[in-house]
Computed example of a mutant assay.
Amino acid sequence: MKYTIIVPVYNRTNEVAELLQSAEQLNYNRDNFEILFVDDGSSDELGKFIHSYRSESNLAIRYIYQENTGPAEARNNGMANSSGDYFLFLDSDCLLPPQWLNKIDSALAEHQYDAFGGPDTFHDSFSPLLKAVNYSMTSFIGTGGIRGNKNSFERFYPRSFNMGISKNIYKNIGGMRLRYYGEDTDFSARIYEAGYKVGLIPEAFVYHKRRTSLPRFFKQITRIGMSRIVIGKLHKHMLKPVHLLPAFLILGLLFLFVLTILIPAIFSWFWIPTFFGFLLICLLAFYQSYKMYQNIKISFLSIIALNIQVFGYGYGLLKGIWKFKIKKTALENL
């Protein structure tokens, strides 16, 4: 067995059904890979669905159950029970293009990566909201290209929505050590620090549905912002001023608001340039999104998603600084 695809799942049976339907279309030898679902204490009868599922293309599917301890521990459990020489991590809300494993195969043959990852993108069937969230999460002004863009402002760190490692890495450095806050980024950093060869495979993308509502998206982004502070405590070089820009933006706006109350005459000096700067960024987001999707509705939603991402991430950074820097919450149980 060359690959074990490890998918942690918590109450997402509907997503698993869609993921399996896309996996049926993989044009790759069925003897060379398996799909291992790790049930993190679901209550929606995931196990019953998996055991009753009949693959139309002879997919090798396995299922294990654990008490609810989080996605990182589910991935660790999956690695401990895998048969493959490589472990491939997917989120349950991903769909696979038919060539996904072939692209990984070709890149490994050419580059001999020890660890690797690919980008995430949208599928044509996604709703306008999901496409807007995809724009926000993959655009340079949204994330700086860190999720699989060749033009990223920093080194590529594979993320667990589309990530692979060799079995030797797991044997030598163990599994993920954080439960919820940046567990995959910390894992990738440890892989780099251990001297392994890590690479981006741009062609090995997945379709990522992500969150299905704006409030859930805000909650997810807030957690990501908090995780950046955790990662910075564990790996000093991974927390730079550029990562803190959304937090500086929030603090700057609060400062301007208070200053304007105290000195109303300065309103035009600061708020008018701030408004036009904000408007320019929104217009740029609209243009980029429209160029990508050719859809006005999605372009307007992209502006909303981008603002939720920036302010949610900034709020998460500030929350993380308070929790992990000021209150000094221990990281061992995260």
Score class of each variant (00 low, 15 high):
residue 232 G to M: 00
residue 233 K to T: 06
residue 235 H to V: 00
residue 235 H to L: 00
residue 235 H to E: 00
residue 235 H to G: 03
residue 236 K to G: 00
residue 237 H to E: 13
residue 237 H to S: 15
residue 238 M to A: 10
residue 238 M to H: 14
residue 238 M to C: 11
residue 239 L to A: 03
residue 239 L to W: 08
residue 239 L to T: 08
residue 240 K to T: 14
residue 240 K to G: 05
residue 240 K to L: 13
residue 240 K to E: 05
residue 241 P to F: 07
residue 241 P to Q: 04
residue 242 V to G: 02
residue 243 H to Y: 04
residue 243 H to L: 00
residue 243 H to E: 10
residue 244 L to R: 09
residue 244 L to C: 12
residue 244 L to N: 10
residue 245 L to C: 02
residue 246 P to M: 06
residue 246 P to F: 00
residue 246 P to K: 07
residue 247 A to C: 06
residue 247 A to K: 01
residue 247 A to T: 06
residue 247 A to F: 05
residue 247 A to P: 04
residue 248 F to L: 15
residue 249 L to W: 01
residue 249 L to T: 11
residue 250 I to A: 01
residue 251 L to V: 15
residue 253 L to T: 05
residue 253 L to K: 11
residue 253 L to G: 07
residue 254 L to K: 06
residue 254 L to H: 01
residue 254 L to C: 13
residue 255 F to Y: 12
residue 256 L to N: 04
residue 256 L to F: 13
residue 256 L to G: 13
residue 257 F to E: 10
residue 258 V to D: 09
residue 258 V to R: 09
residue 258 V to N: 05
residue 258 V to C: 02
residue 259 L to Y: 15
residue 259 L to I: 10
residue 259 L to V: 02
residue 259 L to N: 14
residue 260 T to S: 13
residue 261 I to C: 03
residue 262 L to I: 14
residue 262 L to P: 02
residue 262 L to C: 12
residue 262 L to V: 14
residue 263 I to S: 12
residue 263 I to W: 10
residue 263 I to P: 10
residue 264 P to G: 08
residue 264 P to F: 02
residue 264 P to D: 02
residue 264 P to L: 04
residue 265 A to W: 14
residue 266 I to C: 01
residue 266 I to H: 01
residue 266 I to Q: 07
residue 267 F to T: 11
residue 267 F to R: 02
residue 267 F to G: 09
residue 268 S to A: 14
residue 268 S to E: 14
residue 268 S to K: 13
residue 268 S to P: 13
residue 271 W to P: 09
residue 271 W to L: 10
residue 271 W to S: 07
residue 273 P to V: 09
residue 275 F to W: 11
residue 277 G to H: 09
residue 277 G to P: 11
residue 277 G to D: 04
residue 277 G to I: 10
residue 277 G to S: 15
residue 278 F to P: 06
residue 278 F to T: 03
residue 279 L to K: 09
residue 279 L to H: 01
residue 280 L to D: 07
residue 280 L to N: 12
residue 280 L to Y: 11
residue 281 I to Q: 04
residue 281 I to T: 08
residue 281 I to N: 02
residue 282 C to N: 15
residue 282 C to F: 02
residue 282 C to A: 15
residue 284 L to G: 01
residue 285 A to W: 09
residue 285 A to I: 08
residue 285 A to Q: 05
residue 285 A to H: 09
residue 286 F to M: 06
residue 287 Y to M: 11
residue 288 Q to L: 15
residue 288 Q to I: 05
residue 289 S to G: 01
residue 289 S to I: 05
residue 290 Y to Q: 07
residue 290 Y to K: 07
residue 290 Y to H: 13
residue 291 K to P: 07
residue 291 K to M: 00
residue 291 K to H: 02
residue 291 K to N: 11
residue 293 Y to Q: 05
